[in-house]
Simulated assay, not measured.
Amino acid sequence: MRLYSMYFICKNNIEIIRNFKLDTLSNGTGQINRVKGWTDIIISLNKLANVPGIKKYSEKLYESVPVMVRERDGFDLSIDVGGKVESARKELLCSISTIIDMYEQMGLAQSTDTGFDIRLPQFYSIKDFSNCIKDLEFIINQCPFLNVPDGEIKFKSADVGSFWITFFVVGTAASQILFNFSKLVDAAVKIQSHIVTVKQQEEQFRSMQQKNELTSDLIDAFRKVNKSLVVSAVHELEPGLGSLEDGEEVDKVGRSIEKLADWMNKGLKIYSTIDAPKEVRDLFPPQEEQLLLNDDVIKLIEQKEKK
């Protein structure tokens, strides 16, 4: 993992770990420590477990909580066990702070320009990398919803040695562009699985085309299904983002959504910049994270999402 990725994860989770406190209460026999909001801590620990050198401290904090209560969002601990939890929290917080301080003291930290970060997928060929950049260029420069008067998306930087690239948005329409982009991403997320399934089925039948002439009809059918999904997604955006002028604009928005969905399926992720205002951070859908700590984490997070 490259340094910016480590910094990004640490910066976005340090406040949760810093604010994790154990309340001290008295009961009939003495004092206890009470934990609240453990599920939110688990989610942050799982993200921090992606960072080399910090995973062991994330695991230590997680495992400092007794097994019988780890799946609860709130629970009571003895003072002795609570002390171990607090000690593990401080160790983790110190490690997170070290990475953040090192990155910022090197002068690498992002400025407060409003914008978004894109983490590209892992590439194994220069062709795939080139195609991804070309598709991003098309989305940013050709999508009508992102090309509005008095605003512009500009390339800012690429993190050396990693797959992170940063864009910032300028002009009086910057907030509108970010809002539109977030809705475009949301649309891509919604149809992502459908687009991928249709493309996979189309590829399967295309490989059979020479063996069976009837498969050409099926391929056409899959293409029509795919186009219908994309066009429907475009029209769902219009009431909130504005009407499109003609079929060409509908096509450009549709292709932008389809390209986003395709690359997101391959691992591309989009985030607001680290220091963006809360209203900007809230625009973008949450990104799925790989679960690294323990199988029990899956159950705990699922329980949290159902509430």
Rank of each mutant, 00 (worst) to 15 (best):
L48T: 13
K60M: 06
F167C: 08
A173D: 07
P285C: 08
T114W: 00
I133K: 10
I195M: 02
Q192V: 02
V280R: 01
E288S: 12
I16S: 09
V225L: 05
S193K: 14
R70W: 10
T215A: 09
V65C: 06
P286C: 04
A221E: 07
G30Q: 07
F138E: 01
N141W: 05
F284W: 13
F179N: 14
R281A: 11
G30V: 05
S175E: 11
E137Q: 13
E104G: 14
Y103I: 04
Q209C: 10
S125R: 06
I32V: 15
G267H: 08
P239K: 13
V160K: 14
G28T: 04
Q122D: 08
K304I: 00
K252E: 03
N141H: 09
A158I: 08
Q210S: 13
K199D: 03
D220G: 04
G107D: 09
G254Q: 04
I16F: 06
M102S: 14
K47Y: 09
R2Q: 09
A88M: 04
Q210V: 06
I32T: 09
H194R: 13
Q192E: 11
P144L: 01
K156C: 11
V170S: 12
K266Q: 08
R223S: 01
F116G: 12
P144Q: 05
V280D: 00
I99G: 15
S97F: 11
D251A: 15
A88D: 01
P277T: 11
I133D: 00
K90F: 12
I43A: 13
A173F: 12
F145V: 04
F163D: 13
L291E: 11
K11I: 00
V65A: 08
I298W: 02
A174G: 05
S272L: 01
S78R: 06
L136E: 00
V280W: 00
L45N: 12
A261E: 01
K278T: 10
L45S: 10
D282P: 04
D135K: 02
K199M: 03
K266E: 04
S216C: 05
E249L: 10
L93E: 15
I274D: 13
L22Y: 14
K259L: 14
F222A: 02
P149T: 07
F205I: 13
G161K: 02
Q122T: 10
W164L: 03
D101S: 15
E305T: 06
T197W: 01
R2F: 02
Q200G: 11
N141L: 15
G254K: 08
T273H: 08
L3M: 10
F145D: 04
